Simulated assay, not measured.
Amino acid sequence: MKKIAGLLFLTFLLNSCDDGNLVQEDIDFEDFTTQKCSTNNIIYKINDKEALILEIPSTNFVNDPTADNSPRTLNISATSNRVVYRFYNGTVSADNICETIQPATPVVVDQWSATSGTIQITTTAVKTTNTTDNSTKITGYNHYINLKDITFSIKNGEQTFRSLPFGNYTTTTTSLPFNFEKVLTKCSNSNTIYDFKSFEAIMLDIDPSLIVNEVTTANSPRTGLIGTSTNKLTYRYFSGLLSSSYFCNATTPTTPTLSEEWNGVSGVSGSNGIIEVTTTTNGPNAFKHTITLKKVSLKKGNSSFTLGDSYILGELFTTN
Rank of each mutant, 00 (worst) to 15 (best):
72 R>A: 10
301 G>S: 12
290 T>V: 15
128 T>W: 01
104 A>P: 04
212 V>N: 09
208 P>R: 08
138 I>Y: 06
101 I>H: 10
172 T>Q: 14
28 D>E: 14
202 I>E: 01
103 P>W: 01
163 S>Q: 10
117 G>P: 07
29 F>C: 11
20 G>T: 00
248 C>V: 05
122 T>A: 15
13 L>R: 02
228 T>M: 12
230 T>D: 02
12 F>I: 11
241 L>T: 15
272 N>D: 08
161 F>Y: 12
208 P>Y: 12
176 L>I: 03
229 S>K: 02
32 F>A: 09
77 S>E: 05
299 K>V: 11
162 R>T: 10
58 S>E: 08
7 L>V: 04
58 S>C: 02
270 G>F: 02
145 I>G: 07
48 D>V: 09
83 V>A: 05
200 E>S: 15
217 T>P: 02
311 Y>W: 06
164 L>P: 01
252 T>V: 09
180 F>N: 03
9 F>H: 08
17 C>I: 12
311 Y>P: 04
106 P>F: 06
135 S>C: 14
6 G>Y: 10
221 P>D: 09
118 T>F: 13
19 D>F: 03
310 S>R: 00
199 F>S: 04
207 D>T: 03
212 V>T: 14
136 T>M: 08
197 K>E: 04
187 C>K: 04
129 T>L: 14
38 S>Y: 14
45 K>V: 08
296 V>P: 02
9 F>I: 13
229 S>M: 04
92 V>T: 06
141 Y>C: 02
109 V>S: 12
298 L>M: 02
149 D>W: 05
116 S>K: 12
